[in-house]
Design a protein around this nucleic acid. Structure first.
Lengths: 156, 156
DNA sequence: CTTGAAACCCCTTCGTG
DNA sequence: CACGAAGGGGTTTCAAG
């Protein structure tokens, strides 16, 4: 399948710049310049263009939660009562710092969340006390990630 | 529930440093130094300590895939034949760049993946051609993210 | 664990092609 | 788009408290 209609035109140099910075956000612009073979000022102009296009949405330090004792990742499918306003449930979920992702989804569940806990006990606590207690939540289905094998961004 | 037994001791200054850099990996160290009220050299030492502890696992530029036309995120539960070696299936999944996450999970599915596609047609193509064709994959269950409401790292 | 100084490198902008 | 120059500022290391 040939993917067409790319919404934004970026060339090979842009890709090299992005790939370097996606790997390590603190890569010096001048180092990229040397690798790519153009001047630092040119990299700058391209970065400004990419930022203006909103393709670059920020930069992050990535921390390893295992070092803090967060070793249990789980996914939870949430059934909401018909009457429940979904945004209100999301609002409650935002208050739970262990909830890392939250999606409205097709299928049986109204809401699907990814959660990171210290251990199974912590997971059970969050389910029983923080999640099940949200008004509108009728039922949840939980499955635990035993190991994460892939974690990456889309390929540029 | 009071969480105890934090595996690594970090103090309030460490947290401030991490929070600044988790928001924007290119925040100048000296700016953090001014905010926190200690010298740049001290920030440096603390960062080295945090890196050595593996709490910091890197830094990334975050790109917005929507700008490239990737607007459809989906989750796929994968059933594998008993005989199938899971690592081989993961190896195949790694070759599909649209697969952003892959987990071994408890529950009905052997493997659970997050995938990012241009549109539903693209999703169907990947399911039929790239995923179902992996030896050992007997069946899949797909649900689509209609909207992502939360996307963050664990709170420091 | 902190500091200030010093050397070095990088960021950023500018005028120019 | 690209370039080189230039200043202002950041990074990194050091000896020292």
């Amino acid at each position: 399948m040939k993917i067409v209609n790319q919404s934004l035109q970026i060339d090979g140099i842009d890709k090299k710049i992005l790939r370097a910075l996606m790997q390590d956000a603190r890569t010096p612009i001048l180092e990229i310049a040397r690798q790519v073979g153009i001047s630092g000022a040119a990299i700058h102009q391209r970065l400004r263009k990419l930022e203006k296009s909103k393709l670059i949405s920020g930069s992050k330090f990535v921390i390893n939660p295992k070092v803090l004792g967060y070793t249990t990742m789980a996914f939870i499918g949430v059934y909401l009562d018909k009457a429940m306003s979904n945004p209100d449930a999301v609002k409650q979920l935002k208050k739970i710092p262990e909830v890392l992702e939250c999606h409205y989804t097709t299928g049986d569940w109204s809401i699907f969340i990814k959660i990171l806990c210290k251990d199974n006990e912590h997971l059970m606590y969050l389910l029983n006390n923080d999640i099940q207690s949200i008004t509108g939540v009728s039922r949840t289905e939980t499955f635990i990630s035993l190991a994460q094998q892939i974690d990456r961004q889309i390929k540029i």
